[in-house]
C-alpha cells in the first residue's frame, strides 16, 4: 500500500534521519579517502602496481559496498599490494545489481575506475546527439 501524501510527508524526515545515520560511517570514510587522495597521494606520485590504485579502489569499494564490506575489500587489497605481487588490473567486486545506464547517476570514482565502459557510453551519447 502506498502511503497517503500526508503520511508520506510525516514519515519522510524520520526516514531521512535514519538514512543519514545509516550512511554516516560510509560518508565519513568517503570524506577521509577523498581528502587523502587530494592531499597525501600527490606527495608520492603513482606507486601502486594495480589499476585502480589502492586509494581509488578503497573509495569505490566504500562508495558502492558501504563502510563495513567496502572497508574489508579495501583492507584485503592493501595486503595484496606488495613488491612480490606483479600487480595489473584488479577491479572492485561488483555488487549484486549494477545500474550504469545513466552515467550522470554513477559516482565519479566508479566512472574513473571503469573508464572503458563510460568512455563508450560517452561516445554513444555524443553520436546520438550528432545524429
Amino acid at each position: 500500500m502506498t502511503p497517503s501524501p500526508t503520511e508520506y510527508r510525516a514519515r519522510r524526515p524520520m526516514a531521512a534521519v535514519v538514512r543519514f545515520f545509516w550512511h554516516l560511517p560510509r560518508n565519513i570514510l568517503i570524506i577521509v579517502l577523498k581528502l587523502y587522495r587530494r592531499v597525501v597521494s600527490p606527495t608520492y606520485g603513482q606507486v601502486c602496481r594495480f589499476f585502480p590504485s589502492c586509494s581509488a579502489y578503497a573509495l569505490e569499494a566504500v562508495t558502492v559496498h558501504g563502510a563495513v564490506k567496502g572497508g574489508w575489500f579495501a583492507a584485503r587489497r592493501i595486503v595484496r599490494c606488495h613488491p612480490w605481487n606483479s600487480g595489473g588490473l584488479d577491479p572492485v567486486p561488483s555488487p549484486a545489481t549494477v545500474d550504469w545506464d545513466d552515467p550522470s547517476m554513477v559516482p565519479m570514482i566508479v566512472q574513473l575506475n571503469h573508464p572503458h565502459v563510460f568512455l563508450a557510453k560517452q561516445q554513444e551519447t555524443q553520436s546520438r546527439n550528432a545524429a
Binding site: Y44, V47, R49, F51, P83, N85, S86, G88, L112, L119
Partner: peptide, 28 residues
C-alpha cells in the same frame, strides 16, 4: 576518463610483460 583508460591499459601491458615499474607503497 581517457587518462584513466590509458592508465588501465598501461597496467594491463605491464602485467602482460610481467614487469611493473611501481614498487607498491611498501617501501614507504
Amino acid at each position: 576518463l581517457s587518462r584513466q583508460a590509458m592508465g588501465q591499459e598501461q597496467m594491463a601491458l605491464y602485467k602482460e610483460h610481467g614487469t611493473n615499474p611501481f614498487s607498491a607503497c611498501l617501501p614507504m
